[in-house]
């Protein structure tokens, strides 16, 4: 089911945590909620989950407002982790499954299956406090997944994980996405999720600053750089055909060009090949951090002189 937020606003006293956030998470697409610390990610997730009431705006699934009972079929893992230390791993998962409405037998069966999937198959009767840190992290994920939720919301799931654990978590989440679940995860490590999420929503100061498919955002941004290896090239008159293209760096046998969003990189490459042999080339896409910084800068200028944000190839909703 599609998870949507429209114009979400939330204030803590006189501090505005969310200032009209829009969001759409589609099933089968791993979606990242990105932004620096303090951007409002956790508050946004809490509002999505119904833990906090929005002051304005609403959360919808499949085109209708979310009801309390819908969220029984959702799973949530908060950023700050916590389990009942004196309970066994199995009892813990069974409890969370039952809280989400499963009967005892089904809940226990699900707990066993999930523990096996998380590599904790032999820990069903072991107390949580006796598990290693890594095992507790996996068990924590289990509490969000044990009832096989339709919508999975994870707050900073990669924080504190080693590379192996990141890989395991990715596999676990990809399996849910492939099964058509709606998965939203947040991270302040923008470049970590760059290759993981298919779509992203970037927030800053309680506003959406960038949203869309990662590949598209990176490819269509005005921050692409074309690297051309042209040994002994002479002159760059051919570049005159491409207004807006800026030479960033020039060496004896190489050029680095910055391409505006509307310029086709392949056309520039073809033009270069017509003048001299190109022995090496590459198109460097901006990282998500660079896109974020650009979007935040544009947002800052947008408030004063209001340039068309779309010209930069970024979709800004605020």
């Amino acid at each position: 089911m599609v998870l949507e937020a429209r114009g979400l606003t939330h204030r803590f006293g006189d501090r505005t945590a969310l200032a009209g956030v829009d969001l759409a998470v589609r099933p089968g697409v791993l979606t990242g909620l990105l932004g620096p610390n303090g951007a409002g990610k956790t508050t946004l997730m809490r509002v999505l989950l119904g833990i906090l009431e929005p002051d304005e705006g609403e959360v919808r699934t499949d085109g209708r407002p979310v009801a309390f009972s819908d969220r029984q079929r959702w799973g949530y893992m908060p950023q700050e982790r916590g389990l009942y230390p004196a309970m066994t791993a199995g009892a813990q998962l069974t409890y969370f499954a039952r809280v989400h409405g499963l009967d005892r037998t089904t809940a226990q069966a699900r707990a066993r299956t999930l523990l096996a999937e998380l590599g904790l198959g032999d820990r069903f009767d072991q107390k949580v406090e006796q598990l290693s840190g890594g095992m507790q992290q996996r068990l924590q994920l289990g509490t969000a997944l044990v009832h096989d939720p339709d919508v999975i919301v994870l707050d900073e799931p990669f924080a504190g994980l080693d590379p192996v654990a990141v890989e395991e978590l990715t596999v676990t989440l990809r399996a849910r996405v492939a099964a058509g679940r709606t998965v939203l995860l947040s991270s302040h490590q923008l470049d970590l999720v760059q290759d993981l999420c298919e779509e992203i929503v970037m927030v800053d100061h309680g506003r959406t600053v960038l949203a869309g498919p990662v590949a598209e955002l990176r490819a269509s941004s005005g921050r692409r750089q074309l690297r051309l290896g042209i040994p002994g090239h002479d002159g760059r008159d051919w570049l005159a055909a491409f207004p807006g293209v800026v030479v960033v760096d020039e060496a004896v046998d190489a050029l680095r060009l910055s391409l505006p969003a509307e310029v086709d990189a392949l056309a520039v490459l073809d033009a270069a090949r017509r003048t001299a042999p190109v022995v090496d080339f590459g198109l460097d896409l901006p990282t998500l951090s660079q896109l974020f910084l650009a979007a935040v800068e544009d947002g800052a200028t947008a408030d004063s002189v209001a340039p068309p944000a779309a010209a930069l190839g970024t979709e800004v909703r605020s």
Binding site: L49, I51, Q72, W74, Y76, P78, G82, Y84, V99
Partner: peptide, 13 residues
């Protein structure tokens, strides 16, 4: 403090 209540509040009133 362990945020268990947050997880529970998504499914319980």
């Amino acid at each position: 403090s362990s945020r268990i209540s947050e997880v529970l509040l998504t499914a319980l009133r």
